[in-house]
Design a protein around this nucleic acid. Structure first.
Length: 598
RNA sequence: GCACCCAUAGCUCAGCUGGAUAGAGCGCUGCCCUCCGAAGGCAGAGGUCUGAGGUUCGAAUCCUCAUGGGUGCGCCA
């Protein structure tokens, strides 16, 4: 093995300072180096595929490494021979109790109880910082989410995207990135004109006129108030006036009103943006021109005529020459128009300019959170960012699938026309922000989500929100009881207690689950997958509930030892550590832990 | 027609960027409260991971094809 590879190992170890799995992986790599030095392994082996992870079956041990199998071929040795040599080396580490070769060449490791006890102590010492990672190494990352059109209140579909983006941003922050949470306001296109016309109708209505809402306007009640506010502001000035007189001013007024509404919706959900970026600000300021000039300089802008899509040619199709972006140069299927045949920008042009601006602001990575119906734009956006940044800034686009609503046991279909339109407010007002957020994260972003109004409020184990909160409440209850016994329940005091009694397999099982937390954070952050946090918390809660019930017939496993404050003081470390991790996890999801279930 | 996403227990879904005998919850069967919150726990039954090839020590995971769903496809954002 080369010195360069050894240095890589050390760098990894530093990154994952508090991750026990990484520490053991580092140990494995170090011992592989030692075997090389002793001439028992050939030099120059590539160890990048060596992993240390929890085995699927706990009876195999605490951790398993595939090192022997990965290295067998390049080393031209039998996997079992490598595994046995490595096992002997690893046993010299005080943390390793057993090292067994199994199956095709797995090396199963069992760690000493003291190692797990030390991990629990780490949790109590570091508190919320336990599990924090510097995986991101302070790199700047921009997460764009929600970006709902400023034409009305947010609905349930937006809600899922908002929760996902917000949790992802928190997760990345926890994993050591410098995160910016950003909202792109689509205030530059035709739909804000439609909004302005709709508000104008409500304005007329506020003046006592009878109005009707033709197709292509927004008939929603939420604009009534805006029409009245407009009346308060401008009085009769816009009555009987042509559109040229009022359109621009009403548009601006209405957009601001809608953004105020959306900010309130976001606040109700507990989402706070760092930055609102206006599409309109890109027009007439040379920004779009600048971005396109950059692409043009790279030879990616040209005049051309697109082929009609095969199999589904629009009836009114006719070939037109347009200004096109050569997105096919960066993986797209066809080139995309940036300027219409009448000389106006397409929506794609400001999108390019917006992402150009993000790149210019020096972000190391970008993430866009879109609705699944925008799946068709992924390739072109990635192509644009790849071109603008010279391939230096990765863009990950997360598509959020639909939310299906259920009420009274049946699917609840939304329809703007029928007025059965469920807003973010409807949901948050009925079930609260915490439940809304957690439930929205109990599915992968690209899987459809069923949201059942009755079920999410149910207090039973098939409601994951309740199940996790219940575990936290039980933990809190235990601490209250301990305190009533006169035990000092501060984390500082608990962390100083002797943890060597934590040796029952049932207790160690919980400690092992806790030790997975830092590793899980990194896995979730690497994949931009906050849902993993929610699933982990459910599993952790499950382990905790199981241990709790063991106390029913095995009294020494109870956290509160009646009439024995000393024993209690020692026993509450584990539940408290569970509480710390649950609290951290819920914090990433934006959910407040409950100390009591009421 | 093309592109992207998806297909895992009867149902709803996980599956840690290729690991060992594929896991939870619901539902079903049988147990556990004079005892820290039973709003919970334990045990059992339930699978050709849609199908067929391929890559390799090893595939639910990666590649190709097929089938079945979802989304989108210039002058709307």
């Amino acid at each position: 093995m080369t010195p360069r590879l050894r240095m890589l190992h050390r760098a990894e170890a530093k990154v994952d300072a508090m991750n026990l799995f990484s520490e053991v992986k580092d140990l494995v790599l170090t011992q592989l180096d030692a075997l090389v030095a002793e001439g028992k392994l050939p030099e120059g082996l590539d160890t990048k595929n060596v992993t240390v992870e929890p085995p699927r079956d706990a009876s195999h041990g605490d951790m398993a490494t595939n090192a022997a199998m990965v290295l067998a071929k390049p080393a031209k040795m039998k996997p079992r021979d490598i595994a046995e040599a490595l096992a002997e080396k690893l046993l010299s580490d005080p943390r390793v109790a057993e090292a067994d070769v199994a199956g095709p060449g797995f090396l199963n490791l069992t760690l000493t109880a003291a190692t797990w006890q030390a991990e629990v102590a780490q949790i109590l010492t570091h508190g919320p910082a336990y599990g924090r990672s510097d995986l991101g190494a302070g790199k700047k990352i921009n997460v764009e989410y929600v970006s709902a059109n400023p034409t009305g209140p947010m609905h349930v579909g937006h809600t899922r995207g908002a929760v996902f983006g917000d949790a992802l941003a928190s997760l990345l922050d926890y994993a050591g990135y410098a995160v910016t949470r950003e909202y792109y306001i689509n205030d530059g296109g035709g739909q804000v004109d439609t909004l302005a016309r709709s508000v104008y109708l409500r304005y007329l209505e506020a003046h006592g006129q009878e109005v009707s809402f033709p197709d292509g306007t927004y008939p929603g009640d939420y604009l009534i108030e805006v029409g009245e506010k407009l009346k308060d502001k401008v009085g009769e000035d816009y009555l009987d006036q042509p559109e040229e007189v009022w359109l621009e001013s009403v548009r601006e007024f209405a957009t601001e009103e809608m953004m105020a509404l959306i900010r309130e919706d976001l606040a109700a959900l507990g989402v706070r943006m760092d930055n609102f970026y206006s599409e309109k600000s890109l027009y007439g300021t040379g920004q779009i021109e600048k971005a396109l000039a950059d692409l043009k300089a790279k030879g990616l802008i040209y005049q051309g005529v697109l082929e009609p899509p095969k199999g589904k040619t629009p009836e009114d199709w006719e070939p037109r020459e347009q200004t096109l972006f050569k997105s096919t140069a960066h993986g797209d299927d066809v080139d995309r128009p940036v300027m219409k045949s009448d000389g106006a920008w397409t929506y794609f042009a400001p999108d390019i300019a917006y992402h150009y601006d993000k790149v210019s602001r020096g972000y190391d990575a970008l993430i866009d959170v879109f609705g699944a119906d925008h799946g068709g734009y992924v390739k072109r956006m990635k192509a644009a960012v790849a071109a603008l940044s010279g391939g230096k800034v990765p863009l990950d686009i997360k598509l959020i699938q639909l939310v299906k609503l259920f009420k009274d046991g049946a699917e609840f279909k939304m329809s703007k026309r029928a007025g059965t339109f469920v807003t973010l407010r409807d949901v948050v007002d009925q079930v609260g922000p915490d439940v809304t957020r957690f439930v929205m994260l109990t599915r992968k972003n690209d899987a459809p989500l069923d949201f059942d109004f009755d079920k999410v409020l149910e207090q039973s184990k098939d409601n994951p929100v309740f199940y996790v909160q219940y575990a936290y409440a039980r933990m809190s209850s235990v601490l209250r009881k301990a305190e009533a016994q006169g035990v000092d329940i501060s984390d500082a005091a608990i962390s100083k207690t002797d943890l060597s009694h934590l040796s029952d397999p049932a207790e160690l099982k919980v400690a092992k689950k806790l030790a997975e937390w830092p590793r899980l954070v990194e896995i979730a952050a690497r994949g931009n997958e906050p849902h993993r946090i929610a699933f982990y918390l459910y599993e952790l809660a499950s382990e905790f509930h199981a241990l709790w019930n063991r106390g029913n017939d095995q009294t020494d496993l109870r956290f509160v030892q009646d009439g024995d404050p000393q024993a209690t003081a020692a026993k509450i470390a584990l539940p408290r550590a569970v509480g710390v991790v649950i609290s951290s996890g819920l914090g990433i999801l934006g959910v407040t832990p409950l100390e009591e279930m009421r």
